[in-house]
Amino acid sequence: MLSKRIIPCLDVDRGRVLKGVRFNGLRDAGDPVELACKYRDEGADELVFLDITASLEKRETLKKLVKDVASNLDIPFTVGGGIRSLEDARELLCSGADKVTVNTAAVEKPDLVSKMSKHFGSQCTVVSIDAKKTGNTPSGYEVYTYGARRPTGLDAVEWARRVEGLGAGEILLTSIDRDGTEDGYEINLTKMVCDSVNIPVIASGGCGRPEHILEVFVKTSADAALAASIFHYNTHPIPQVKEFLRVRGVVVRI
């Protein structure tokens, strides 16, 4: 039986891990490779690196980071942030990333998702969806791009279905409203998206306690739960979270 995955997320800026609150107010949380290895040793099932560097040398620093991580890690990891083209994706995959995730570029050029899926396989093509409750779309949740700054008018649930059709192999679904709040995952949104697609969904945004992870696994069919601060600041280390889930009947890799 497939286990539910616990995925620490590392936001990276110029080679350092940061953690923000609602996409703002960033704090330094450490060295990416060091943290990656720590999480691997603690039993993380996978890692996600989101590069938020807004500078010209971005591509080179990210490539170097991916190489450093890949040479030290024997669990899978996903990389995202500013991937605009097939060539960007190829560079990261060839540097050792297992999957790449696209967000803004997927909305602006949906064709990129199908191209990535065709060239590299759907298994390395992850589409990140940042959704916010606006009431402007049929499901009530609207897709945002550019680091949760720009509304797109797209409905989050419909967009999820569409990217599945384009060949996405996984959806990383972040609730903008919950991100960084530690108030728990946005269950309603996660459930709607999970019920609308037949590809794995990673729930993201709002995790503050192991109970939140349990809740998202019990109330939705999410395959994985992503969290950052509870792991970075060691408030709830991964072994503790996994044990908490295991004794409550969730299948986890221990």
Partner: peptide, 13 residues
């Protein structure tokens, strides 16, 4: 089979 999500991504036994 279509009864399960594909791709099969993750840790299994």
């Amino acid at each position: 089979p279509s009864s399960v999500k594909t791709p099969h991504i993750g840790w299994n036994r």
